[in-house]
């Protein structure tokens, strides 16, 4: 039938349009794993904070409180870096695997565009966090990471699976709400980077990966 050929043509057009402009091999499972690492990281951070809270500040017996504080900040920084490195490494491996299966190259124009557009808001946010710390607004750092990560996702969504846009919006909303609850940053952080990643990652996994 002639109309079958036309139907094939239309689906070929759609396929080429999305394959050439979006990087669609992004693995949903990597989102789930990033969420799991974030929850583990948040748990470790919580332990560190509790340990500090249990110190008897009236009887430091020679310990320097400033040293304790910088030690804590270093510990939290190492945990955050560990979570990030693990999440990125897992994401790359799983995405490579998915790209290999679907015959898409992992480093092509689409993935380059995706990475660049993701990094612009993210790096801006990272630098802004350093500036916040510099000026003593440390309490706003966790909100800022959530907001800028959300903006990065919204920006990057034009170059990959569209669902990333809604995850980004969830992060932005969560980040803005968390500004009103100073001192609960870690919980919002776990809710965003942990739970949001797992939920959206799982949704994307069932929608795209399991075919």
């Amino acid at each position: 039938m002639e109309s079958n050929k036309y139907l094939e043509d239309i689906s070929e057009i759609k396929n080429m349009m999305s394959r050439s402009s979006r990087f669609i091999s992004l693995s949903g499972l990597s989102g789930v794993m990033a969420g799991v690492y974030a929850l583990i990281g948040a748990f470790l951070a919580k332990l560190k904070l509790q340990a500090i809270a249990n110190i008897d500040w009236h009887d430091l017996s020679g310990e320097d409180p400033i040293k304790i504080e910088t030690g804590l900040i270093m510990d939290l920084f190492v945990i955050a870096m560990g979570v990030m490195v693990m999440a990125i490494a897992t994401g790359i491996v799983l995405t490579m695997y998915k790209a290999h299966n679907s015959g898409e190259k992992i480093w092509n124009i689409s993935s380059q565009r995706l990475v660049i557009n993701f990094l612009i808001p993210l790096v801006t946010g990272g630098l802004f966090c350093i500036i916040l710390y510099q000026n003593g607004f440390s309490s706003l750092i966790s909100s800022t990471t959530l907001i800028f990560y959300g903006l990065a996702c919204v920006n990057a969504s034009k170059y990959t699976l569209g669902d990333v846009r809604y995850m980004g919006m969830a992060f932005i909303i969560l980040g803005l709400i968390s500004t009103q609850f100073v001192g609960y940053g870690l919980y919002f952080w776990a809710l965003g980077f942990g739970l949001c990643h797992i939920v959206y990652g799982a949704l994307m996994y069932f929608k795209y990966d399991r075919k």
């Binding site: 043509d9 070929e12 057009i13 759609k14 080429m16 349009m17 050439s20 402009s21 124009i109």
Partner: peptide
């Protein structure tokens, strides 16, 4: 198919 593909790609990308 190839010409259809070329045009589809160039419709959504500034250049290729």
């Amino acid at each position: 198919r190839i010409r259809l593909g070329i045009m589809s790609i160039l419709m959504v990308n500034d250049y290729a």
